[in-house]
Amino acid sequence: MIRVLLVEDSPTMRHHLRESLAADPELQVVGEAADGAQAVDLVRRLRPDVVTMDMMLPTMSGMVATEHIMAEHPTPILVVSSADRQELFTTYNALAAGAVDVLEKPRGDASDADWGLRLRSAVRLVSRIRVITHPRARLDGRGRPPASAEPVAEPRVGDLLRVIALGASTGGPGALTELLRALPAVFHPPVLCVQHIAASEPFAVAFSDWLAGQTGRDVSYAREGTPVGALGGRVILAPPDRHLTVRDGVLRLSDAPPRHSCRPSVDVLFESIAAEFGPSAAGCLLTGMGRDGAEGLLRMRGRGAITFAQDEASCVVYGMPREAALLDAAAYVLPPARIAARLVEMQPAGSQR
C-alpha cells in the first residue's frame, strides 16, 4: 500500500482527491489536513509515503509546511495547485524547497476527464522517490548536506567557454537556482537550459519569470533563429514541449519525437552543443529521475567539453547524474554552487565581461 496524506483546505476538493485515489486499491488515504500546521503534525505522527499539498492554506501556508516537512520528516510531496499566477510562484518556491512534482487542480472543463488518472499516476511516481532533508528547508541549520568530498582537479587551461548547457528534472528548480545565484553578475557565457516540468503549460511558462526573480538574471524562453553570440550573460530555457538545439550558431526549436519520453530532452541539447562548440562548452547534469542527459553529457566530454554532474548528497533525486557518473561522462561531481565556482575559475582572467 502507498499511504497518502491529503492537505487541502477545501472540503469539496479534499472529497475529490479522496474519491480519485480510492479508484486504486493500492493507494490508501491515511489522513487529511485542512491547514499547514496540521499537515506538519500529521506527517510526524502518521509518516505517510506521499503528501498531496495545496499551497493556499490557512494558519500555515503550503510553502511553509513544505519547508517544515522537508527539514524534519522528509516525505515525497506532490503539490496540487491552481494555475493562478500568485499560486504558481508559490508552487515553484515549494519545488525549490524539496517538493518533487506538481499537478494542476481540475479546471472545470473537458481537460478534467482524465484528472483522476493523472493524480493516481503522479502519486505512484513520487512515492518511488527517496527524498533528502532539503538544504533550502533547513530552518534552523538542520539537514545541511556535507560538503562534497570529491577531489578537485586543476582548472582547465584552453578554450574560452562560449556556452554553458544545463539539464535538470525532478528537484531542478532548487538546483538551478543555487547554481545560477552562485555565478557572478558579470559571467558572460550564455546558459542554455532544459528543465523537465511535468505540468500544464501555464506552470511551465511561468517558470522563466520565477527563475529570474530567484536569481536576478535575465531569463527567457528560447526563440527560433536567435544567434547564440547575442545571448551573453542570459539564461535561455527550452520552451514547453519543444526540443532546444544549436545549429550554425543560432537557436533551433524542434517538434521531433521525445527522447527518453522527454520533450524537451537534455540529450538533444547536449548532443547539439557537443557538435557545435566542442571544447569551448561546458555541460552540467543536475538532479532528476531517469537517464535523460547522461549520453549527451558523454558526447560533450568526448568532444573536449568540460562536464559536471551534481553530487548525490545535494540531489533531490540522484537519477540522471548517477547515470552520467556510471558512463564516466562527468569530469567533476559537485553540488550546484561548487559547479558554478568551477565554471568561473575556468574562465581566463579578464574574460568575465
Rank of each mutant, 00 (worst) to 15 (best):
P184G: 10
M1E: 13
T133F: 08
A39R: 00
A309V: 11
H260A: 11
L95A: 08
Y221R: 00
D218S: 12
Q352F: 14
G288A: 08
E67A: 11
G319S: 11
M320T: 07
E312V: 02
L183F: 08
T177P: 05
Y318T: 10
P184T: 12
R136V: 14
A313W: 08
G143N: 02
D140T: 06
L251I: 15
L95F: 05
G172K: 09
G116Q: 06
R217K: 14
I197W: 02
F207G: 02
G290W: 12
L88M: 14
G350Q: 02
A199C: 10
E150H: 11
A340K: 11
R18W: 09
R338A: 15
V228H: 01
S220C: 13
D112V: 01
P257T: 09
F203Q: 10
M63P: 00
R44S: 12
M300K: 03
D41P: 00
A275Q: 13
A324K: 03
A113T: 09
S208Q: 12
E19L: 13
R217I: 07
S254V: 07
A71F: 00
S261Y: 14
E178W: 00
A309L: 12
E8A: 05
A137W: 01
D292I: 09
R128A: 14
Q310T: 06
T177E: 15
A329K: 03
L117P: 00
V123A: 10
A330I: 02
Q352M: 15
A65D: 05
M300W: 03
L17N: 10
R18H: 15
L160D: 12
R263C: 08
L27S: 09
G143A: 08
E224R: 10
R156C: 06
H196R: 05
R342F: 06
L180W: 01
S254N: 04
A313F: 08
Q347E: 13
H260S: 11
E8M: 08
V205Q: 09
E32W: 06
M13Q: 15
E224W: 06
A122P: 04
R85D: 14
A65S: 12
L57R: 04
A325F: 00
T75G: 08
E323A: 15
E276P: 12
